[in-house]
């Protein structure tokens, strides 16, 4: 009997261990290490690391670059999320109908999502390049002067926002398409018989039924706007003058260009907290939120 229990325990541990090792080694340990690093100063040859407590976090609040980068992130979120959600809904409504060439449209809308961010950035580099870029070529036809879209602090963030929308809208479309397909076609027929117009049906039925989808997409879009930075490596490196810099890229710079591990750790902990709070909000809302069926 005792042998039995022993064996079962052993099996349990055997199954648990590989996953635990991976989780601890690559998630928990780095998180804790980062937190600890953020409480200590950087060590150098002449000065060993010492405990500085929350000093790193105070630096963060006094750092104008941090605030610049953080507000860039907020602008990026505000600029991309509503528009890409709106576009996603429109695209989903289009490809949900029995239009000719529907599968082609679906794939076309989804393609930008399948591309890696680096590839997307390379494509858009070609659009935005001054003089020779497609945007300038087209605008040139209308007699509009050439712009250095990515080199000008006032246009660089909007340029990145447009690119991000292009990349994300197709991804969100998939969720809306799935959401639309759970709505029974009989509802549309019942509404049609009552004389409800397409627009009326969208506002009174489809939109409210898609609310859980919207909430899910909203939070994912918010998280993504902090997580996606690959394109900065190709397009702007955060420049000019941090005009397109984002938190994650700033962390990378701080750690690996400025070699300030302590400060990078404080920034990382801040970002982690922000994402954790958002993720918790997601669990809370998505679970609590009205589920109709």
């Amino acid at each position: 009997m005792l042998m039995e229990t022993h064996k079962r325990h052993l099996l349990g541990w055997a199954l648990f261990t590989p996953a635990a090792i991976l989780l601890i080694a690559f998630t928990h340990y780095p998180t804790i290490a980062t937190f600890i690093n953020s409480l200590f100063s950087n060590s150098s040859i002449i000065r060993p690391s010492r405990f500085i407590g929350v000093e790193g976090y105070q630096d963060l609040f006094d750092d104008p670059v941090f605030w610049k980068v953080f507000s860039n992130n907020i602008w990026l979120a505000l600029g991309t999320i509503p528009t890409s959600i709106g576009l996603a809904i429109i695209m989903a409504l289009i490809v949900n109908k029995a239009v000719p060439g529907r599968s082609f449209l679906r794939i076309a809308y989804f393609t930008p999502t399948m591309l890696p961010m680096i590839a997307v950035a390379n494509i858009w580099l070609f659009f935005y390049a001054p003089e020779i870029g497609m945007l300038d070529q087209v605008l040139g036809l209308f007699g509009i002067d050439s712009h250095n879209w990515l080199g000008n602090p006032s246009t660089v963030l909007p340029a990145i926002i447009v690119m991000t929308i292009w990349k994300e809208a197709g991804f969100f479309m998939i969720f809306y398409l799935a959401g639309l397909q759970t709505i029974s076609p009989e509802l549309a027929e019942a509404a049609e018989l009552e004389g409800s117009s397409r627009w009326n049906f969208f506002w009174r039925v489809q939109y409210p039924l898609l609310l859980p989808t919207t909430l899910f997409v909203l939070i994912n879009a918010f998280l993504n706007s902090f997580k996606l930075v690959d394109h900065l490596f190709v397009l702007t490196k955060g420049g000019p003058d941090n005009a397109s810099n984002l938190i994650l890229y700033y962390i990378y710079e701080t750690a690996f260009s400025f070699l300030d591990i302590s400060y990078a750790s404080a920034l990382t902990v801040f970002l982690l907290l922000l994402l954790a709070v958002t993720a918790l909000a997601q669990f809370y809302f998505v679970d609590k939120r009205v589920h109709y069926r």
């Binding site: 509802l187 027929e189 069926r293």
Partner: peptide, 14 residues
Amino acid sequence: GVSMVFQSYALFPH
């Protein structure tokens, strides 16, 4: 000028 009752009732769940 017709109304219809559907097999699955077609009620709006929300």
